[in-house]
Design a protein around this nucleic acid. Structure first.
Lengths: 333, 333
DNA sequence: GTTTTTATGGAAAGCGCTTTCTAAATCTGA
DNA sequence: TCAGATTTAGAAAGCGCTTTCCATAAAAAC
């Protein structure tokens, strides 16, 4: 591999001149510039990004922390990040945290030890304080979580309004008795979605009953257990909203196992519009989660912050209804 | 950030000694070693991976090329790769090729310009020659594709035997009239799966009829169009095998749209055991694709080749039946 | 007790680039 | 025409490590 010295020699100029040409500095004689470019061509010279990083203490690499990768949600996020970053010649180093505090911290340290210029995080285990502390070490973007002190760096879905839309949609279809399977009480997004649900009920003058609420942990089996528990109670409901699609899918299998016809006997709406939403039967009506855009914005935020670019940023994202086949209009009784 | 100089100074030893301690060389006095370790602790020193890379021309980074990321298949592969590599303190740089030759080549050059020590590829667009040429530039692992000249570096599913198993399973359940929706004719894996199907038929003395074959391109809509086309023909079949789960899912919705009961009127088997297989209705009987293991092995191959480790390698993977609810025993007519 | 080995630590030369500083060359204006 | 301002190019000093080579001290051999 040719080095910058050889280019300089071949072009009959000094190191510095080659470097200037390579970095597009204006102050170089067009004649020399041409010579250098010719030499670069002839030697098929490619600057060493490592040497460059050492010299200017920038690696052009961005670390991304995700909870896991085998899930389409994160895949989409990663793809958005990779595409927008590579277009600017930056590269992304991935690291998975498995939703575990120790592992997440470990992953972050790993990324930092790799001299990343910045980090993009989708963390559930780290505390707000951890994130604030991190931000003081290097620039970060935070996806799908709002940290007050890090307002600028956060890119979130409007979970409350999403939750609102979901049950609002059901109400508009004539449903009055609506059960809810929520995510864990310690997760902000889960609680916001639930809050939206309550607001929609209230607005329609329907009292919220804790009886018709089941708290799950966002897993498929929580959908199964949740619906089972709900059905066992002495309550009636013609519709169910699940705080994510996985639980909705679980609820669907459970419903069928219990002999219910879908969507005739029970309307279901999910949340996130993950790939499976389109493949379950009946196809799931759900709430979109524009993770692709969020990933893109998180990347652009880094581009602005670290590399002096000027992209327009959007921090809060609307959750929109994706209408499919799992909701039926309630027949007036 | 502390440098190695400061550690040396604080420990009262030379640079070289610190470096030796850091790299676990044996030839260093335990007393000094201890001093150095103490200094490292106190200064919270972390070696700069960039400087290290420049000095020993290894970056400890492995580039991974995938067709796309938003699909669970690649996600699982990535996760396997990341986990096994990070355990050895290597990091992975991702790059997506979008199944397009120019983009794949571009992505590869990008990765190389990043001074990756090696590459792991899941490429469909590049030619065998491209791959061979690449191998001569730096070590590679190839997932899900067999290149004769690169035998050592390939980690593949036994597609033929998978195709065989799928059809064989149907035959064992009493099916005789089995339609097949295949992947594109120019893809080796698609053709191998089909070959397995034919072998199973032949073994059972069932003649293969081109009439009952539809060639798709591995997309959901191909499943829809495929089944539609098959049903329109003047043939009977009680079972259908689809060369991947996406087409199987498509075929399922199509079947239902055409008023067929699943699995009573039509048994379906898929291929790959992608997440959705578990969420469609009825749950899809399919053929496993141990992509996780393959990713792990591809990573270990690099570990062996570049970093002198000695992992046991497996190159060919069995495809196993995953029995769920989409296949019914055929009633003998 | 002297010579030969062996173990161990330090000095210094890179690795391939960026960037500051200086010097030479060119240009300005009176 | 000349002092001063302005360009432009080169020399050299890092960036933070690894590693070779050499020197010294300790151990072994005679």
């Amino acid at each position: 591999m040719a080095t910058i010295y050889q280019v300089a020699e071949r072009a009959g100029v000094s190191l510095s001149t080659v470097s200037r040409v390579l970095n597009g500095r204006k102050t170089v004689n067009p004649l020399l510039r041409e010579k250098v470019e010719k030499a670069v061509q002839e030697l098929n010279y490619r600057p060493s990004s490592v040497a460059r990083s050492l010299a200017n203490s920038r690696t052009d690499s961005i670390g991304v922390l995700v909870a896991e990768l085998h899930t389409p949600f994160f895949g989409e996020m990663m793809q958005a990040i990779e595409m927008t970053l590579r277009a600017q010649d930056k590269h992304v180093i991935i690291s998975v945290g498995h939703n575990d505090l120790a592992k997440e911290l470990d992953a972050v340290e790993f990324l930092i030890s790799r001299n990343c210029d910045a980090l993009i995080l989708h963390s559930e285990a780290m505390s707000d304080q951890d994130l604030v502390a991190l931000q003081s070490r290097l620039p970060v973007s935070i996806i799908n979580r709002h940290v007050k002190e890090l307002d600028e760096a956060c890119f979130c879905l409007d979970n409350e309004s999403g939750g609102y839309s979901a049950t609002r949609h059901l109400i508009e279809q004539g449903h009055k008795d609506i059960a809810y399977i929520s995510g864990p009480g310690n997760k902000a997004d889960a609680m916001l979605r639930l809050a939206g649900h309550k607001r929609a009920l209230q607005e329609a003058g329907i009292p919220f009953s804790p009886e018709s609420l089941y708290e799950g942990r966002f897993k498929e089996e929580d959908g199964i257990n949740g619906l089972k528990a709900l059905l066992a109670k002495d309550i009636k409901f013609s519709a169910l909203v699940c705080a994510n699609d996985w639980m909705a899918s679980g609820a669907m299998s459970c419903a069928r196992d219990m002999g219910l016809q879908l969507p005739e006997d029970l309307s279901i709406v999910g949340f996130d519009d993950v790939v499976i939403a389109h493949h379950v039967y009946p196809k799931l009506t759900t709430v979109s989660n524009p993770i692709y855009e969020m990933g893109e914005m998180a990347a652009k935020h880094i581009l602005n912050k670290v590399y002096g670019q000027k992209h327009q940023l959007q921090h809060l994202y609307d959750a929109e209804m994706v209408l499919r086949d799992s909701v039926l209009s309630a027949s007036p009784d």
